[in-house]
């Protein structure tokens, strides 16, 4: 069953392993094939088709699905798609980078031993457990014209109207909600750093700052990379927070997912599928570049990595 045993046994044993692995993976693969793969493929196919009534070359009415080539993709060059792409990218870059800084800070704070730590941890992590729709509503309430945000800063800003302030509101709310997720994964990474490493640094007279940059950060890097990868993939697909906080069809906060949803609910199925395909390719590209540049070991066999590390 184990890797070490595997090397000692013959090819028949390995064939048995493959069969058993296939058996154990089958529930996952069936569910994913049905709910993710099949709809994804049909969306890609649909992005090249059009439906509804039109007139053909001879002036007759034709109905049903017809191959449309790249016609559905024409909107990709349009202002609305480009704007949504820019918004999505802005939100992703802004929220993920702020979350990394805040998340590491939160993790360091939560990691220290002191009385009332459990309480502190809970209050820092709670935002992540708040349902997205609820946090959208909550921030909308806070960002009302006569809401508490304006009271605190002493300004009269119309946060939930079109403009830069709406983007800021979305970034604040999203960061509030998901920085704890990064903090949680980094905290988990911090917990496995052996105390002796810090001891040695202290003996060598390293400053707190040096300790952080030279020891803590490199050692939590794997945990941070996992957190950033999954956060990026989620941030690029963000939909419900801007939708609930600011509203649907708002130019300054419309993300690609929101645009797709809007097209789909107006039964513009072809363009919706084309935009969905583009977004999928965009996320795949970014994840690919990220894994290539920073985390080649993310996909590696966990066992070999551990053996190399020890």
């Amino acid at each position: 069953m184990s890797g070490a045993a595997n090397r000692r046994r013959g090819p028949r044993e390995r064939a048995g392993q493959s069969r058993l692995a296939a058996l154990m993976l089958s529930p996952t693969l069936v569910v994913l094939a049905l709910v993710v793969l099949y709809p994804l493929l049909s969306a890609v196919r649909e992005s090249f088709y059009t439906s509804g009534e039109t007139l053909d070359a001879d002036g007759f009415v034709v109905e049903g699905e017809r191959f449309a080539g790249l016609a559905n993709y024409s909107g990709v060059l349009g202002e609305r798609f480009v704007n949504a792409l820019a918004n999505t990218t802005l939100f992703t870059v802004a929220t993920v980078s702020i979350e990394v800084v805040l998340g590491v800070l939160m993790a360091l704070v939560m990691h220290r031993a002191f009385r009332g730590r459990g309480f502190l941890r809970a209050s820092i992590l709670i935002p992540w457990a708040v349902p997205t729709a609820v946090s959208g509503l909550m921030w909308r309430w806070i960002f009302q014209a006569d809401g508490v945000a304006n009271t605190i800063i002493g300004q009269q800003i119309l946060w939930t109207t079109e403009g830069v302030q709406a983007k800021i509101a979305v970034i604040v709310a999203d960061t509030w909600k998901t920085a704890p997720f990064v903090g949680l994964l980094v905290l988990a990474g911090l917990q496995i750093i052996a105390g002796e490493v810090y001891e040695a640094a202290r003996v060598d007279g390293a400053s707190a700052w040096q300790t952080f940059w030279r020891i803590t950060l490199p050692l939590v890097r794997p945990a941070l990379l996992v957190a950033v990868l999954f956060r990026m993939m989620d941030a690029l697909r963000v939909f419900d927070l801007p939708y609930v906080l600011i509203g649907p069809r708002k130019h300054s906060v419309e993300t690609l997912s929101a645009l797709i949803w809007d097209e789909a609910t107006r039964v513009h199925y072809g363009p919706a599928s084309a935009y969905g395909t583009m977004l999928f390719l965009y996320i795949a590209l970014i994840a690919f570049v990220f894994v290539k540049l920073l985390g080649a070991d993310l996909l590696a066999d966990v066992r070999t990595r551990r053996r190399v590390a020890s």
Partner: peptide, 16 residues
């Protein structure tokens, strides 16, 4: 599977 934009799949999922 983690990269698939869920909103783009709602219509195929609906039919499925």
């Amino acid at each position: 599977a983690q990269m698939v934009p869920v909103e783009a799949l709602t219509i195929p999922l609906f039919f499925l």
